[in-house]
Write a protein that binds this DNA or RNA. Structure first.
Lengths: 217, 217, 217, 217
DNA sequence: CATGAATGAGTGTTCATTCAT
DNA sequence: CATGAATGAACACTCATTCAT
């Protein structure tokens, strides 16, 4: 009946332990691609190579699946990032640019970034989730950025700007990129597509220049 | 039967002719707040003070209603903006800041900006609409910004940066603000809310400083 | 598309006001016949001559439909009965027999008595309903019977037996008849069927004789 | 089969042979409490301490389990009862009261009486079972009672009433008690609970008095 | 034109049943 | 034999859409 799978070894080889992961991956893809409501649970199950009923063995409801997708992709990248930032040796200007690029490479460019689009799109339908996302993802990220800016100011590298706003000057383009990538991006003629790394690089340089005390190009 | 709304001034004023407009307005609110799928047409009709059946008299389907909402709110602010920009007298730095602020005040801060959130959220389910939105809204807006930047370069005010990327440095924070306002914003504790105008102002100054050839504030 | 109805006059003739009643009647039949779980809402709707969706226009859920069926059939027969009992002129012995027979004729023999079977069968799945049934149906009924017995005792007709238990001696056979009618009854070969009225009559006479002070056959 | 119920001392004792019995016992409890449909086979298995799959090793389907539960609990108490009745020495009046009380103590008060509730509740969904129950349980029981009544008539103790109806006057309260115990009983405030033995005793005395030829207690 | 009762295709969820291990 | 992961048919419920009035 079912084994039209392309490359399934033995069907029981892939064990219970793998199922949640496979389902979460399939769900992430579909939720990001089509939105929460337009994604049917059966589709998710089928893409994960199981039947509809099996999905409910692992996630008690569609909503729980959704929440799990979000939670699952809230990698501790942030925590890891904090450690690396602490060890960073170069100038604060370089740190800012490095952080932005790393954020993009490690999160923005990955499938997981679809989560951000998803959460922003569905925030009002899942307020708890939005809250969770803010405290678990956004706040820690902001802390990292704020510290980097503070470092620059403390070291006499940056002017004492309004810190909280400057944080947004750094994060906004990144989140915008993610939104764009998962929404308008695919509709864009290839020549008009934004080159994320180039954009981040130039944006970082503009900001850093704008933040810097003295001129030295 | 005939809408005895809470605070409608002139009953007879609100009549047939306005129906589509009232429906579109109600639909905009709800689509923006809850997304396309989570919005029920009956809710839209009720908020517009008509019955469900009446809605289908003006819009043959929910999808058509959605498209009409988007098309209807694509104001020609851009066209008007172009004229004003052409007449702008001050420095290009001032122009950039002025443009960003105006964009926010005239669009970002209004309900119409919900369209941007809507289109980004639902782009993958309505690719044609996304396309339409890009050519009708985004491109013209980008043109305006690009011209302003070009003006600054031509006048020796700005360094010759990658123009297309710089456009995004200007637009990204604005679009981010709009997304934020319509998604995470309402979930945010009031003290952590972003002050849009302050943010735009500082961001514009940082960018302009970053773009400028020499230092002389 | 649908009008394969056998004898529907004009389809809109049967108006909204009739729907709840028709649905409740259909639901009573099916719930009694097959039990709560085995009854599909679509079946109920179809038997009432409407579509599945229509049912949910009037009852928000299957459970609510069930509760409505029970409540709807809790006729105020009891209240009415109380009045008639108060006016009863004959002996208490005659009153007891008359009450039992009336209970049967007005309730036990009607379709509504299926409710009793239903409630007893599903009591543990719908505790609130069981409670409701006890206070609204059983208790008032018991009060009536208790009063009749007390009257007999007060008037020197009956011996002073344990009142509460005697009430059950009167009610138990009635409720048993109802249960039987809606469960084993239909499976019974016709010759073995219980004749309710004859049974009630003889049972009442036996009880009354048993209750009476003196002998007078 | 051998009852190592609730607090099984020797683990190894509880083994293969007992499986069906434990399953039947668990199933009886649950079927009686929640009805056939509302009982999940997994629950039954869990309560019996085995896995869902194991249940199907012993009973090919839920329906078969149900039938087995009913058949299994059709104890031959009746056969045994018949013997005791035959040896009964006292008056027929005493015999009637004794039989009712014994029926209650040996069957009505035990878990097995749940079967009666079950069969009555589900009779219309399992007509064959209802039939089976009638011929195997009800008829023999009725025979016993009928014989006792006939004995009383033959011995000049009772008046020649309609025998078949009198049988129901005796059985109805017993079956009612059983239904009540398994349905409304648990919902009843404790003070309103029926005391079965007191009720049976008084009911038997009322009936016997009603049946008796002369008065002389 | 406007209504709102009616529809029915579509979706989330449950649960008896199977079967590879 | 026992397990429990997997299945899929079945059902409650929703909601865009229609249409008689």
């Amino acid at each position: 009946m079912n084994p039209l799978d392309t490359a399934a070894p033995h069907k029981r080889e892939r064990r219970k332990q793998d199922r949640p992961g496979e389902l979460l991956e399939a769900a992430l893809d579909l939720f990001v691609e089509k939105g929460y409501a337009a994604t049917r649970v059966e589709e998710v199950a089928l893409r994960a190579g199981v039947s509809k009923g099996t999905l409910f063995l692992y996630f008690p409801s569609k909503e729980d699946l959704f929440k799990a997708v979000v939670r699952d992709n809230i990698v501790e990248t942030v925590a890891q990032g904090a450690a690396e930032v602490a060890q960073f040796q170069g100038s604060s200007a370089a740190l800012i640019e490095w952080m932005m690029l790393q954020w993009w490479l490690r999160y923005g460019a990955t499938k997981a970034s679809g989560i951000s689009k998803l959460v922003m799109s569905e925030a009002s339908n899942f307020p708890e989730l939005a809250q969770f996302y803010r405290t678990e993802v956004i706040e820690p990220g902001h802390d990292l950025v704020r510290n980097a800016l503070q470092r620059g100011i403390d070291q006499g590298e940056f002017r004492p700007v309004a810190l909280e706003l400057a944080v947004h000057s750094i994060m906004a383009p990144l989140l915008f990129l993610v939104m764009w990538k998962h929404s308008m991006g695919p509709c864009c003629p290839s020549q008009e597509r934004i080159d994320p790394e180039a954009f981040i690089s130039q944006h970082a340089q503009l900001l850093v220049r704008g933040l810097s005390i003295a001129e030295s190009p």
